[in-house]
């Protein structure tokens, strides 16, 4: 499915020049005048409250996954990282053979996905229209030991982007937009889903399947850390600029994959991301809290390191 394309050095140089001129939005330049206004609503807290030392799955969690690849595109290779932010609503399904074993159901919804820069420093942005269109998935989870050192297992999470569910986890992906299995999932009248590259440098329509199998260890009653097996398959259907439609090759580097499952409903020592105080943590609240979570080191993004792929 994946093809290698090596554009000419001239095309790369031109692309580099164009990227150098791209405007980057500047952040907050002048602080809010009224300090009281700057306080976040509803006492949003990342500190967590009291805890009893036992992990109770019931409630709302954030599943943060980092999957890492070597990306071969435009004649160069780069260390490519994908950071996915999932809202996970857990409910216990029953005890295991021992009292410390727990089965539970996980309702998993992608809230946001960030990606590291690719060729020539361009970043691919996943619009909210895409994440919002992906359905919530229900997965089985299993906890072997509910205290520190306990093991966490999850059923595989397979997501089809711009594809009907007729495409199974091991099926080859459609190659063209006129394949009936390609759907306009984000409702923009274009096949597949539309991603934005650079600061509106170009757009690209893709069909994609992602597969994740996270596993981890309980490190606190509100936190599980671990790794994941991942696989991504992608078909480029169209692009607003030919350069952006270039097929690329992804080589999985699982040693760079990581997952963190953290409690975000404020219970049992977890962070409280319920900014509007309605008793629920939704995707908008998780998305808005990303910078704060990163700043507090509750989740951590690794920096791309091109040397890893050489």
């Amino acid at each position: 499915m994946v093809r290698h394309v090596r554009p000419s050095a001239a095309a790369l140089a031109a692309l580099g020049l164009l990227v150098a001129c791209e405007a980057q939005r500047i952040g907050a330049l002048i602080p809010d005048r009224d300090a009281a206004l700057a306080e976040d609503a509803a006492g949003l807290s990342l500190d967590g409250g009291g805890a009893d030392g036992v992990l109770h799955p019931d409630g709302t969690w954030l599943l943060f996954m980092q999957d890492r690849y070597c990306l071969y595109a435009a004649g160069s290779v780069s260390d490519f990282l994908v950071w996915s932010w999932y809202r996970v609503s857990m409910s216990a399904a029953g005890p295991g053979a021992q009292s410390s074993q727990t089965y539970f159901q996980q309702k998993v919804k992608l809230c946001a996905q960030d990606q590291s820069p690719v060729t020539a420093g361009l970043i691919t942005y996943v619009p909210a229209s895409v994440t919002g269109a992906l359905p919530e998935r229900t997965l089985d989870g299993y906890l072997l030991g509910n205290r520190k050192g306990g093991q966490y297992l999850s059923e595989e999470l397979a997501e089809n982007w711009g594809l009907s569910d007729a495409v199974g986890p091991d099926d080859p992906l459609p190659e063209t937009a006129d394949d009936p299995r390609v759907i306009d999932q984000d409702g923009d009248d274009l096949p597949g889903v539309t991603l934005i590259i650079g600061n509106n440098f170009c757009t690209v329509q893709i069909a994609q399947r992602t597969r994740y199998r996270p596993t981890g260890t309980v490190v606190a009653e509100h936190r599980i850390e671990g790794t994941l097996w991942s696989d991504v398959a992608k078909s480029v259907l169209d692009a607003s600029l030919p350069l952006c439609g270039t097929e690329n090759a992804l080589e999985t580097r699982p040693d760079g994959n990581r997952m963190v499952l953290v409690r975000v409903d404020g219970r049992n020592g977890g962070s409280d991301l319920d900014a509007d105080g309605d008793g629920e943590v939704d995707c908008a609240e998780i998305t808005a809290a990303r910078e704060r979570l990163l700043g507090a080191d509750i989740v951590v993004k690794d920096e791309p390191n091109a040397a890893r792929c050489r």
């Binding site: 330049l29 005048r33 509106n200």
Partner: peptide
């Protein structure tokens, strides 16, 4: 034309 002007976010209170 692929030019763009991106506005910085407005601070509150102004």
């Amino acid at each position: 034309d692929r030019t763009s002007i991106l506005l910085a976010p407005r601070p509150r209170g102004y």
